[in-house]
Simulated assay, not measured.
Amino acid sequence: MVIGSLKARLLVRESRTLKDKRRVVRSILDRLRDGFNVSAAEVDTHDDVKVATLAFATVGFDMAAVQHVLQQISEALRRHPVAEYLGGESRVGSEIV
């Protein structure tokens, strides 16, 4: 079994309040959860009105497939019309269960 994770930082420029930011973050998380069948959550910078730190996790049997899913998520974040992708870090490893 292969476990992969991605931690990404986004700049939500048009956000004026935490409510604005939460709306954008919720939309991103829901869309990517449904589109890629991954676990997703906001994991840091909760009180920052402009910056969101999101994490994604996926599990599979093939390392290349897990890496591909994380790369697709990263690309989807880069193309988002409202939030600017500031960077991310992915990790993929195998674990025997």
Rank of each mutant, 00 (worst) to 15 (best):
F36Y: 15
D34Q: 07
R9Y: 11
Q71F: 08
T58M: 08
A55K: 01
G35N: 01
S90Q: 14
V51K: 06
E89Q: 14
S27D: 00
R78S: 10
D62H: 12
V2A: 04
G60V: 02
D30Q: 07
D34A: 11
A83P: 09
M1N: 03
E89K: 14
L54Y: 01
V38A: 07
F56N: 02
S90R: 12
M63E: 15
T53R: 10
V51A: 05
I73S: 09
A40Y: 05
V51F: 05
S94W: 12
V92H: 01
R33E: 01
D62A: 08
K21N: 02
N37F: 04
K21V: 03
A64Y: 09
S27V: 00
Q67M: 03
E14C: 01
G35T: 02
L18C: 10
M1S: 06
R23I: 03
D44P: 08
Q71S: 12
Q72E: 14
T58W: 05
Q71Y: 06
E42C: 10
V92T: 13
K50Y: 04
D34L: 06
S90I: 05
S15Q: 07
L32R: 00
S27K: 00
S39I: 03
M1F: 01
D30E: 10
R91E: 14
L29T: 00
E89G: 08
V49K: 09
T45P: 01
D20F: 04
S74W: 04
R9C: 08
D44N: 13
S5R: 11
R13Y: 10
D44Q: 07
R31T: 05
L86W: 13
V24N: 02
G88R: 08
A8M: 08
R9K: 15
P81D: 14
V69L: 06
A83G: 12
E42L: 09
H46W: 10
V24R: 02
E14D: 15
F36L: 06
F61V: 09
L86M: 15
G88M: 10
D48A: 10
V49Q: 07
Q67Y: 01
T45N: 15
I96Q: 04
L77C: 11
A64I: 07
F61E: 12
G93F: 14
E84P: 11
L86A: 13
L54Q: 06
R13W: 11
V43W: 09
L77N: 13
E84L: 11
I73K: 10
L70N: 03
G87T: 04
G87F: 09
A57Q: 08
I3Q: 07
